[in-house]
Amino acid sequence: MKRILFFLVIMLFGLAACGQSDNKGSGDENSEPQPLEVDLQVPEHADSGEAVSMTAKVTQGGENVGDADEVEFEIWQEGAKDDSEMIEAEYQEDGVYGIEKKFDADGTFIVQSHVTARQMHIMPKKSIVIGDAKDEDAEEGHSHGDDETAGEDDSNHHHHDDLAVELHAPDSLTVHEESEVTVSINQEDEPLTGANVTLEIYHDPEEDPQWVNLTEGDNGMYAGKVTFAHSGEHDITIHVKKEELHTHEETTLGVEE
């Protein structure tokens, strides 16, 4: 009888250990960080002098994010990025952050939300036509995805001459295959740490860009994995943000079949 009880105790301990192991494995899977998603809502048209509501709904893994570190809306008239206005958004509910803005002049304006949350940074943007202005780019079939860089110099995006930003990628990139890319950032010949670094990747200006949030490593290195859905040339904008520092660097990558 004692032997039977002894073996039963051993079996119970074994089952408990297996259960803890299974739970641990499940927890590791769930600990994988989910990408940050921002649904930017901007009306296509409004009248000058009208109060326009604009919102950004922030989610991660399908869950609302109500604890974002910073949500701001940057607004500028097309072709005048150097005169952009930055407005801090207020949290409303269910992961939604919003502002109200009155436009005093007719024209096409670009609205870009800057969302920093959970060590990620994402910056989707849309356009709004005010008054009787015509959206000339839309009529010509161009996307506003390139408005940020069209007709502006580096100073419009707070470019820092003492900042060196360089993208490192494998010599050969193949479509549909995951590849790791890294960005090295140095300021005054010293590694820049604690920054939010994001890649904005365009293959076709008619399509929405692919956003990739990079993870900080050692010595000013930031890394992430990218899967390219198309072959050919891709335009890459590297966005770097840390406190008051907000700059970008542009480059290209070729992807093979």
Rank of each mutant, 00 (worst) to 15 (best):
E136D: 03
A16F: 10
L253Y: 07
S231K: 10
G66F: 00
P35V: 02
L245F: 05
G98H: 05
D39T: 07
P170A: 11
I87P: 03
I10D: 07
I236F: 11
N23D: 08
V197S: 04
G79C: 04
L15D: 01
H230A: 15
T247Q: 06
D171S: 15
N64M: 07
A138I: 02
P191A: 09
K242E: 11
S48A: 13
V226G: 02
N30M: 07
E177L: 10
E63Q: 13
T252I: 11
I238E: 04
V71C: 02
Q60E: 12
A150P: 04
D83Q: 14
V175E: 11
K57E: 14
L167M: 07
G145L: 05
H168P: 01
W76H: 01
F103H: 05
E63D: 11
G98L: 06
D208H: 12
G151D: 10
W76V: 04
E90L: 07
A68M: 00
G98N: 09
S143M: 01
G27W: 00
D104I: 06
A89S: 12
V181T: 06
G79F: 10
L15P: 03
H176E: 10
T193K: 15
S184V: 11
Q20L: 15
P43R: 04
G220C: 08
H159E: 12
G194Q: 03
L5W: 06
V129H: 00
M123D: 03
E90Y: 05
G151E: 07
H158W: 08
A164P: 00
T227Y: 02
Y97Q: 09
M123G: 02
M120C: 03
L253G: 06
N219R: 14
S155P: 05
V181G: 03
D204M: 15
E50R: 14
R3V: 12
E44S: 15
A51H: 08
L245T: 08
A117G: 03
D106Q: 10
I236P: 00
E148V: 13
L12S: 14
A16M: 11
F109C: 03
H230E: 14
E250L: 09
M86N: 08
D106T: 04
T55M: 09
V240T: 12
H234K: 10
T174A: 12
E136G: 00
I236L: 07
E50L: 13
K134L: 06
T227V: 13
E249Q: 15
P43K: 09
T237Q: 15
H157W: 15
Y202Q: 09
E90D: 15
E233Y: 02
D204T: 13
D208Y: 07
V111E: 02
G19V: 08
E166N: 11
I128H: 05
Y97D: 08
G220K: 02
T252M: 15
E139T: 11
G107S: 10
T215N: 08
V52Q: 09
S48N: 07
L245G: 06
N156F: 09
E88R: 15
L5E: 03
D47R: 13
Y202H: 13
D69S: 12
N213T: 12
T55F: 05
A17F: 08
I238G: 10
D137C: 00
I236A: 07
K57Y: 06
V52E: 09
V58Y: 03
A164N: 12
